[in-house]
């Protein structure tokens, strides 16, 4: 049986959320709210109440980056300073903590930011080709609700969208 990807475009969040609420109430067999992808011009402030709690792994990468920054920053400096042992230190510490603290702090922030950026690219699934159901109206003022359903449920989903005043329905067969 083939799978259908169907996206309904709604003129506002309220109608899209009403359609999702109906999906949540299991109006269509085999379709869960966890399968819903919402596309919108802005992030709705109460999105989690509608779609449920969905986690983000970005903060974990940030912590990793900051930890790496501290470790690498200090070791980089200390190893460079140890290499300079050939030079006269004038009785001062080979690895001076006050000044290394300043530089390690900067490295903490730099790597924290870089890891955060990389984790965003990975977690948000950026740098991918946009799917064929992408609508430019989503970047303008419409809200898209995207689902992948079995062929037998495709018509039921479209009817559900139509009950909530969908503006446009786009569909493709995936397999």
């Amino acid at each position: 049986m083939s799978k259908h990807r169907i996206m309904g475009l709604f003129s506002d969040f309220e109608q899209a959320f009403a359609a999702i609420a109906e999906i949540r109430a299991h109006q269509i067999p085999g379709v869960s709210v966890d399968d819903v992808t919402l596309k919108s011009p802005i992030e709705h402030p109460e999105i989690e109440e509608v779609l449920g709690e969905r986690s983000s792994h970005v903060p974990k990468f940030t912590l990793m980056g900051a930890t790496f920054g501290i470790t690498f920053g200090f070791l980089f400096l200390a190893s460079a300073q140890a290499t300079f042992l050939v030079q006269p230190q004038g009785g001062k510490a080979v690895v001076p903590f006050p000044s290394n603290f300043v530089l390690t702090y900067e490295m903490l922030i730099l790597f924290g930011v870089l890891f955060t950026l990389v984790s965003f690219l990975i977690s948000a699934r950026m740098l991918r080709r946009r799917d064929t159901l992408y609508s430019e109206m989503v970047s303008l003022d419409q809200v898209g609700v995207l689902l992948e359903v079995d062929e037998k449920n495709a018509q039921a989903l479209k009817s559900l969208f139509q009950r909530h005043k969908v503006v446009d329905i786009r569909e493709e067969v995936v397999r």
């Binding site: 596309k39 992030e43 699934r125």
Partner: peptide, 9 residues
């Protein structure tokens, strides 16, 4: 593409 996953992250 403005997906909820992208906005969240």
């Amino acid at each position: 593409a403005g997906t909820d996953r992208q906005w969240r992250n």
